[in-house]
Design a binder for these strands. Structure first.
Length: 275
DNA sequence: CTTTCGTCCTGACTGC
DNA sequence: TGCAGTCAGGACGAAA
């Protein structure tokens, strides 16, 4: 379930568990994820101390004391579970390690769309996975101005453009639908038909939806990081996503929330509120 | 160049 | 209850 807010919550959980800790008993149980895990992963990570844990878009960056950076992406089904101690590995546990305080960290990913690799700190952001990413939506790098520049010359709908990680980094299908809803913008609207007023609304909506999701996910997703793997609380706060036929939370449409398919992905929206 | 489509893989859910 | 079919929140590379 990982889009930016879920990854951010995982990162916050990892900071608690990993900051300053030494990684031990590093085990790669499957190397054939979306891309092959580096063959020398274990020897390069085992025994190193964690210096920094950060997030870029949906990527998790863990800097080690020799300037190696572990880059993790959860794909569509990846999870990271922190538990108090090592236990019997489960199916789809692909990466497992411990810390010198005894905590165990497990990367589990049934679909194996996740990614794990190593980079050097100096060139980390030049890595192919990170190089082309657009601005971080929750920073001041993401403004109506920067958004408009990146939408220039785009022929696609605004829905498709927002899913493009080069336009803005970290949004997935859920939060694109939600942001367009709160901005009152039709997902079908062409990117070139977004003017300054709509861009301002859209940027504000993206930021507030993500911030709300992080805040709402914060408590329950923390459990998810710690152990249980349950869905986050934010699910209850979704206005349109996966709510086809249900009433729009802010207007009385007859038809309610509608679904359409754009670029092969489901879009949920309120045709009355979104123009 | 841009955009869409197929693809990687497994599991959850629906309908017969 | 079983089984087949459909769909899934990501992102790349091929093809148009």
């Amino acid at each position: 379930m990982p889009e930016l807010p879920e990854v951010e919550t995982v990162v916050q959980g990892l900071r608690v568990a990993l900051a300053g800790k030494v990684l031990t008993n590093v085990q790669v149980r499957r190397y054939d994820l979306r891309y092959p895990v580096p063959e020398d992963f274990v020897e390069r990570v085992d025994g190193r101390q964690v210096i920094l844990i950060a997030r870029r878009a949906k990527y998790i960056l863990i800097t080690l004391d020799d300037s190696t950076v572990m880059i993790l992406h959860l794909g569509m089904s990846g999870r990271i579970v922190v538990s108090s101690g090592l236990s019997q590995p489960r199916i789809h546990d692909h990466l497992v390690f411990q810390t010198n305080s005894g905590a165990a960290v497990t990367f589990n990913d049934p679909r194996r769309f996740g990614m794990i690799t190593l980079a050097e700190q100096d060139s980390c952001y030049d890595h192919a996975w990170l190089r082309k990413l657009g601005p971080e939506p929750l920073t001041n790098d993401f403004t109506a101005g920067t958004l408009l520049v990146r939408l220039q010359g785009k022929r696609a709908s605004i829905k498709s453009s927002l899913l493009d990680q080069r336009v803005v980094a970290g949004l997935g299908n859920i939060y694109v639908c939600e942001a367009l809803y709160w901005a009152g913008i039709s997902p079908r609207r062409l990117s070139t038909n977004i003017g300054l007023k709509r861009a301002l609304r859209l940027v504000a909506a993206v930021k507030s939806v993500l911030a709300d999701a992080i805040a709402a996910g914060g408590s329950s997703l923390r459990d998810y990081v710690q152990s249980s793997g349950e869905l986050g609380y934010f699910q209850n706060k979704l206005a349109v996503y996966n709510r086809e036929g249900k009433p729009c939370p802010t207007c009385d449409c007859e038809s309610g929330i509608e679904r359409l398919v754009q670029s092969g992905r489901s879009t949920f929206y309120c045709p009355r509120k979104q123009r």
